[in-house]
Simulated assay, not measured.
Amino acid sequence: MEYALLQDVAFSSAPGYATITKLQHWPELPVSAEQSLVSQLQTTLDIQQQVNIVSMAVGKILPLSALQLNTAVGEFPARGSQVAAFEHRSMLVLNQQCLAELVYQSEYAFTPMLQRELLLLESEWLFSLRNALVVARLQQLALKDTLTGLGNRRFFDDAIAKAVLLAQRNDSSCALLLLDLDNFKQVNDIAGHAAGDEVLLTVAGCLRDTLRATDSLFRFGGDEFAVLLSGQDADSAQLVARRLLKVINQHHLCQQYKVSASAGLAQLKPDMDAGRLFKAADEALYDAKNAGKSTVRFA
């Protein structure tokens, strides 16, 4: 599904979902019941919170089993959503631009009269939703590398701090893998920056295709990449690192330009904070480059 406006608007992620309770009364709204839906929606630019507000408003029209907003920046379901017998889909369009798709599910049929009521409710959401999507785009631009779409250094600094705290709190595994491309400078010097960009996109694709969705990928800039491994992947981090290098080094485009990858790996230890974990991986990467490149070294 493509959403025209969202070519200029990107993702937002926010915790907090409205609970859908089938055939039960909705909880009191967090704002005054006398406020209109438009007024309530104008209190937040958070997409998920807007879904929460709309879900409670829809619950006053009919008992819902599920409500989900689908956008180019992600899917935002109401918590507790369950498949039901009847489904109704509606496109949210503003100024001939499709913002999103709204999916309702209920054990009751969506009669023409109910659909008209829902359409009126949706019309009150359009401007607030558009504004929330614009904010989400700005958030992505601040956290994403514009070429590869991977997280940037700012995003990485926040993510590694959270990953370390979470691992220590849950007594779980966490590992950091730093990758640097070998002989990359000669690609830009000889074949041009367009070829260099193609190599970087290829490496980013190799990372995405090889790792799980739960692993976090980043590009620092230049030809440096980072991977935060958690859970089972962190336990088998050495195998993951070798597999990544094999995929990158054997890719036909990397072979064409004689580009390979070196990597440094560090496993979180009880006495480490985020800074020490990064330093250990960085030192291991330095050792890998000095060892002849196209290899992995472990801290």
Rank of each mutant, 00 (worst) to 15 (best):
E2R: 11
S12P: 00
S12E: 15
A14E: 15
G16P: 09
T21F: 09
K22W: 15
P27A: 12
Q35C: 12
L37Y: 05
L37F: 10
L41W: 03
L45F: 03
D46W: 00
N52E: 08
V54Q: 05
S55Y: 02
V58Y: 07
G59C: 15
G59E: 13
A72W: 00
V73E: 00
A78G: 06
A78P: 04
R79L: 10
V83F: 11
V83I: 09
A85L: 15
R89M: 12
S90L: 13
S90T: 15
Q97D: 12
L102N: 01
E107S: 05
Y108P: 01
A109N: 07
A109M: 03
P112Q: 04
R116C: 05
L121Q: 02
F127V: 15
R130A: 05
V135A: 06
L141R: 03
F155T: 00
A159D: 15
A159E: 14
C174P: 04
A175S: 14
D182E: 04
A191F: 11
G192P: 03
H193D: 02
D197V: 09
V199S: 02
V203Y: 11
C206Y: 00
L211F: 04
T214L: 02
T214R: 14
F218H: 04
V227A: 02
Q232A: 04
A234C: 04
S236T: 13
Y257N: 07
A261K: 02
S262G: 10
P270R: 07
D271A: 12
G275M: 08
